[in-house]
């Protein structure tokens, strides 16, 4: 052990502080992790063991029946495919719109940019509300179409502000000026110089927007009526919240078996629905702090 650094000169009180701090954080971790681990374990355990409390942490009598039923269910599969499509389409539009707005607004020589920013900020504190937006979507003929899920949320002004700040702070002005002298147009500048230097913020934006699309159910709830267009979250709602899936368990089994199987299906479907997001995010974690921090400073 190296002696003599600042750290080894801790007082007894400081060491006690460390222990208490670690103990409290361990409790926090336990509280956060336990429900997640429980769902994962329950999804591959015998439902009898889960319901009676024998399975309380690690899987017991491993079975994959829940997952089998989930993957045999057409509603879930359709919902899954719909959600993938909405997420890809929606996120692409979000990103293009965000970049296209953030870049001009990051240019200090753009006349009128403060007016645009002011218009953005107003919408953060005051909005037309649910019904006028609904009537608008209805009048535009977008009810029961994909566009109702994508166009009304085509861009987040908050994210534009974050990206604009990133452009201003992280990309040296000299590069832009030099390129301008060389006769590069704004669009080429954005595409060839700015964006390649902005990968961290693009990663954060992609994550924020795609998770938003993946997890949203509200727009689908009010705008869609056609079941074939339902995203995964609406299918999940009928399974998890409304409990309408007895037919999924199969009719050949007895009543109790159906109830038990229903439980397992619920756990499995939670895992299936969240896995893509939970697997994606730790890889992007190192960028968040930056994204949130820029937002915090400017907000």
């Amino acid at each position: 052990m190296v002696k003599g650094g600042g750290i080894s000169q801790q007082t007894r009180g400081d060491r006690a502080f460390d222990w208490i701090n670690y103990a409290l954080l361990a409790i926090v971790l336990l509280i956060v992790l336990y429900p997640l681990v429980f769902v994962l374990s329950a999804s591959i355990s015998n439902p009898q063991a889960v319901n009676s409390g024998q399975m309380w942490l690690l899987p017991k009598d491993i079975t994959f029946l829940g997952y089998e039923k989930v993957f045999q269910n057409n509603e879930i599969l359709t919902g899954y495919l719909n959600t993938i499509m909405y997420t890809i389409l929606g996120t692409s539009i979000n990103l293009v719109m965000t970049i296209l707005a953030a870049y001009p607004l990051s240019r200090r020589d753009l006349v009128g940019r403060n007016v645009v920013m002011a218009l953005f900020v107003v919408t953060m504190f005051f909005s037309g509300g649910l019904i006028p937006s609904y009537l608008l979507v209805k009048n535009l003929g977008m009810l029961n179409t994909v566009w109702a899920l994508i166009i009304p949320g085509a861009v987040s002004f908050w994210n534009i502000i974050i990206m604009r700040t990133f452009f201003q702070q992280s990309i040296p002005n000299e590069i832009q000026e030099a390129a301008a002298i060389d006769g590069t147009t704004d669009f080429q500048l954005l595409l060839k110089i700015i964006l390649p230097l902005s990968m961290p913020i693009l990663a954060v934006m992609t994550l924020f927007y795609s998770v938003g699309h993946w997890n949203s159910y509200f727009n689908a709830l009010i705008y869609l009526t056609d079941q074939n267009k339902f995203p995964l979250q609406l299918v999940l709602r009928s399974i998890l919240v409304q409990n309408t899936m007895s037919e999924m368990a199969g009719s050949s089994t007895s009543m109790t078996d159906q109830v038990l199987l229903t439980q397992t299906i619920k756990y499995s479907v939670i895992v299936v629905a969240n896995l893509p997001v939970l697997m994606l995010y730790p890889f992007l974690q190192k960028y968040f702090t930056k994204g949130v921090m820029i937002g915090a400073i400017k907000g």
Partner: peptide
Amino acid sequence: FLSTVVLAGM
């Protein structure tokens, strides 16, 4: 990162 629907279900 869990959706509201999943949270409500849990």
